[in-house]
Design a protein around this nucleic acid. Structure first.
Lengths: 169, 169
DNA sequence: TGCAACTGCTTTCATATTAAAAGCAGTTGC
DNA sequence: GCAACTGCTTTTAATATGAAAGCAGTTGCA
């Protein structure tokens, strides 16, 4: 944990924890991309470099935003898990996505998930958060996870449609 | 405007616009602190330095997050105004504040506003946004502005109470 | 049993960003 | 007429970032 903060303002403190250009993208990839290993996170859309990724993961673990455990299937693999703190960012992710979609030049395939999150509203967010608690914290879940798969399928549909369109054109 | 983005993901684009340690604090001070001049913004809780403030203001203006106009009362003064884009960040600010309050070591006086925003919910946020549209964009408002003053009064009450408490102790 | 591919990083070095402090050419109020 | 204020800019040093290569293993497969 960091022990000296610039101020006790909640917005400032939030920024000190994840207010940089990379931390929230790592969390995004864990939440929406189901990525849990270093090498998976390294393959981000935005091309994070390995030293920065290593640094941020370390810091996020120190701050209680992630936990790191051994992967029983591979002696060299580490599994990163979300904590309740990070799962609680889902509504903020949804708002950020909606805001970006409204005001910035987003690409269609990368914003379809944000659109569905916006349409689904708090009910969908809460369901998704429960599913993340199931996957990352081992909490019980009523029924099988489905939210991320739905978002992913919508993404793939857009990609397939765009491929068809550009093939025709 | 920046013309090359790392990716078209709405969350990434949002981070590219205000995902640094200072931009959102400047916007926070404009929204909650009613600060509109350079020297006012320089007196932030967190102690931003003048070159960084100048750089961020320039960038925020370039990106359409703020506008800059001359102050008719003083030839050297500039007035910074929020745009609809920035006013639309109010719900995100509220969520960020609520998140910080729940998970980080906030100070009581600096988090009372976040508490009131959380309690007030979307109804309060919308009223506040309308008031900001009135103050910064000149849109009509039903009744006089009151939200920021209410938040500010609550802040001052906490400061006064803490002063009394520490005087007694 | 050997070897290619994969594991989570670390190291190196060049470049970019940030921070603190001082300063500046005016403008304003008294 | 002068002190205080205006929005910055400049300088210098410290720090962070980015790209690329490398490393000491581990694993899966032939």
């Amino acid at each position: 944990m960091k022990d000296d903060y610039r101020s006790g303002c909640p917005i400032n403190l939030s920024l000190e924890v994840f207010g940089d250009k990379w931390s929230l993208l790592i969390i995004r990839d864990m939440i929406f991309g189901a990525k849990r290993h270093f090498r998976e996170l390294l393959r981000s859309q935005e091309g994070i470099s390995s030293n920065i990724l290593a640094d941020r993961l370390k810091m996020l673990v120190e701050q209680g935003m992630l936990t790191k455990t051994d992967d029983p299937t591979h002696k060299q693999k580490a599994i990163y898990s979300l904590t309740e703190m990070t799962i609680a960012l889902v509504p903020i992710m949804a708002h950020l996505g909606a805001w970006g979609r409204r005001y910035l030049p987003v690409s269609e395939e990368l914003s379809i998930r944000a659109e569905l999150m916006e349409t689904g509203g708090p009910d969908l967010w809460n369901r998704f958060m429960d599913e993340l608690r199931y996957e990352h914290l081992g909490l019980p879940l009523d029924g099988p996870p489905r939210v991320r798969a739905t978002l992913q399928a919508a993404y793939e549909d857009v990609v397939a449609r765009k491929a068809r369109e550009s093939a025709v054109a």
